[in-house]
Write a protein that binds this DNA or RNA. Structure first.
Lengths: 336, 336
DNA sequence: GATTTATGTCGAAGCGCTTCGACAAGGTAT
DNA sequence: ATACCTTGTCGAAGCGCTTCGACATAAATC
């Protein structure tokens, strides 16, 4: 292994000078810098991560805690993760993967052992058990999602309330008067998962404001459940003409189910969703949707952390405005 | 931060004794051990990861490189990852997440900087560019999947060749004489991804051996592509009665397409697949399938690495025997 | 021309841990 | 009794890096 003293000797300078060339924390003459860099290249020098972490109390590693629970869409999680890793690398950081299962204990551990400089946690619940820990930590963290109170924390997410409103308003503008939200699996609401609840809030508020008749139905992530919900909806709300879907996994089965029941989309029924654009585009009936900007959220989360690591202040809440793309699944209500 | 000297002072021993209590690398009297452990608990001592890595040249971190390419089923990747993390934790290790994008450079980096002790790479191709690097490294690695030659490497995977054979043999036993394999997207084969090719080999070999008529069709991961393949199959092989699907994403759409074309499963057409059990079970027609034992492969991969880190020899190739579960999608061929 | 300020480099200390050799005390074999 | 392990503990060295203060030199200020 080639170490900093080897480089120093080769370049005819002291180890500290090499260190300063690498870190840029002190001015170095153009000439010395070039010599040192040349030596580094020639010898293939790579600073030892552990030594560096010990001396600088910075590991240049972030922890990312990913959910693996029922009702969480796996591809979306993966998009986050990849985006976090990619962005972190751009800032010279690596990413340690933690599972939700490890919980607060896991977070504590990686912080206490100085394995990581900062934390990103996903799948935040309204009263997440990790909140007190994160608040009390001396290390920066960012939550992807919003708890009941974000005071003293840094949170980022799509503005699900605005998204719910936007869906309803879009349908209302098209003349629809009876709408329904088909949501995530029940356990997601039971756990008090913030984004799902906020979506419901936005949906309901906008419907009330527009004097629409509305209903909310959680739905398991199986085609069978989708069919059951479709049938139930038509039974309970025969005048239904607008549906908002907030459940990636059943979007396609649900549309199939409606069509199986004799409803044309968008002829008889307008459907809009919150889901990744790729999904919305790939369906047989491309769906008017609000994008789930997983990659952007992941990247922004890392950027927030980097700012905090630099000692800069960041705002507690970052809500990404929903962006709706109209595709073929929504249309003006046919007047009977 | 409480450090080892604090614990030592509190317990009335030397730092090295504390270290030996923690690591168990030297015998310690029952009494001293108890006192030290008590002090550790009381003070909440956590060894500094960087210091430990520096002194012991062991970081207790594994690198996991995950694929994010077209045609790779994301949920399966996630299952691997979670299983790797969980198992690694049981051995006191953490997991650093690398994306395929980082390639050889990324692997080199984490090894050279001593960030990780060992590597796990997924989505191995027959002539994977990372092979020479992994062979030359002084650090252990395990590949999930098989390259063209596994010499000097450690590989583990489902035995896809046996899986392909098992599917055909199952169909043959049920009296089917004309079979087709609907495979992964074309690019997967173009890249020379080992598991996909081995599956084809097994399928073809078994079909030839049994004198069945057979055909292989790659298929994009979209419902539309599934429909197209279904139509093409019936056009080209009107006598077709057995289908093997090796493409998680289109399993359901493909069955839908066949039924849409008037074929009953399993009445007119027997379908079998290689996919996670949960997927096979959750479909409208539960599918006879060979499980993709992602969790087991991930766990075994970590165990292999741990053995290698302990200096023990492990076999180069570990092939997990396919395990078929019969569900409702295959039946004896109706004799016309 | 004296004094301050900025620039560039060095040496030494120290980050918190592991590990090696030394050694004392007790046990076992001869 | 001698020699020899074994068990249990300690002290010191050192892992490879960063950082701080010191110092020398050059540039800027009045």
């Amino acid at each position: 292994m080639v170490k900093i003293t080897d480089v120093a000797r080769h370049a005819g300078v002291s180890p500290s000078t090499v260190s300063y060339v690498v870190s840029g924390k002190r001015p170095i003459s153009e000439e010395t810098r070039r010599r040192v860099e040349e030596s580094i290249r020639l010898l293939g020098y790579r600073p030892h991560a552990g030594a560096r972490a010990l001396a600088s109390s910075r590991s240049n590693v972030l922890a990312l805690m990913v959910p693996l629970r029922a009702g969480i869409d796996v591809p979306v999680v993966m998009q986050f993760a990849v985006s976090v890793v990619t962005t972190a690398r751009r800032y010279g950081h690596d990413v340690l993967l933690l599972t939700q299962e490890e919980g607060e204990v896991g977070l504590r551990r990686v912080v206490d052992t100085a394995l990581v400089d900062a934390l990103i946690v996903m799948d935040v619940q309204l009263n997440d058990p990790r909140l007190p820990l994160l608040r009390g930590l001396d290390r920066p963290s960012v939550m992807i999602g919003f708890p009941a109170s974000s005071e003293g924390l840094t949170c980022i997410d799509l503005d699900f309330m605005a998204a719910g409103e936007a869906c309803v308003e879009h349908l209302a503008r098209l003349g629809h008067r009876v709408v329904a939200l088909v949501g995530s699996p029940p356990e997601v609401y039971v756990r008090g998962t913030a984004f799902a609840q906020r979506m419901v809030q936005g949906f309901t508020a906008a419907a009330d404001r527009g004097r629409l008749t509305s209903a909310v139905h959680p739905c398991e992530a199986s085609p069978a459940a989708a069919r059951a919900v479709a049938e139930q909806l038509l039974r309970e709300q025969p005048a239904l003409t607008g549906v908002v879907v907030h459940n990636e996994a059943i979007l396609e089965p649900l549309i199939d189910a409606f069509e199986g029941l004799g409803l044309r989309v968008p002829g008889d029924l307008s459907v809009t969703a919150i889901c990744p654009d790729e999904l919305a585009e790939s369906l047989r009936v491309p769906v008017t949707s609000i994008a789930l900007p997983a990659a952007e959220v992941g990247a922004r989360a890392v950027e927030l952390l980097m700012k905090k690591l630099d000692g800069k202040a960041v705002s507690e809440a970052t809500l990404l405005a929903p962006r709706m793309t109209e595709r073929g699944s929504t249309a003006r209500r046919a007047v009977a």
